[in-house]
Design a protein around this nucleic acid. Structure first.
Length: 161
DNA sequence: GCCAACGTTGGC
DNA sequence: GCCAACGTTGGC
């Protein structure tokens, strides 16, 4: 099996929070609604079963990494793009008859007993090159190095769910 | 609520 | 193919 890789996924807790993921059946959901090609390509090609995921709350008080998850199913089409009732509906995808967008299934594994807010992440010197902390970084699915994942994991004091 | 950064759209 | 206009993200 290929070496485990690491990712960070953003979500707005008002829309879908980490606790919503924990409350979902089997603590698993398909990570729908990514509508950016760069992020789509990662979901489609790069995220593999068993990869580690940092769950990050954006537009939150405070914005923070709040827990860990794992990829349990690799990329497949995001059906929400074809559903007119979904807020992620994509008329162009509907016209084409197939969804160009991708989801993976992620499962919550650990809750941080100490969520790590942005300000605190910025204080950790080894994270200075982290994608999340780059100015203007908006990518909602982004790569994380093993060192970054381990450091953030340790600092968050994760508790197995 | 403001606004900087970024991605996408569409006129030409 | 250029680029201005527009929409979205997301920190503050």
């Amino acid at each position: 099996m290929a070496k485990r890789k690491y990712w960070l996924m953003k979500t707005e807790p008002d829309v879908f929070s980490f606790e919503d993921l924990v409350a979902a059946p089997r603590r698993t959901t398909h990570w729908e609604g990514v509508r950016n090609y760069q992020a789509r390509n990662l979901l489609r090609d790069e995220l593999k079963k068993g990869d580690g995921v940092l769950i990050y709350h954006s537009n939150a008080e405070p914005s923070a990494v709040v827990g860990l998850a794992e990829v349990v199913r690799e990329g497949y089409p995001d059906a929400a793009a074809l559903d007119p009732k979904s807020e992620y509906f994509d008329p162009k995808a509907k016209a084409k008859g197939e969804s160009p967008w991708c989801v993976v299934d992620v499962k919550a594994t650990h809750r941080f007993s100490t969520p790590l807010p942005l300000a605190q992440l910025r204080e950790l010197a080894p994270l200075k090159d982290m994608v999340l902390l780059r100015k203007g970084s908006r990518l909602s699915v982004q790569p994380v190095t093993e060192a970054e994942f381990e450091l953030i994991g340790a600092n968050g004091k994760p508790v197995k769910i």
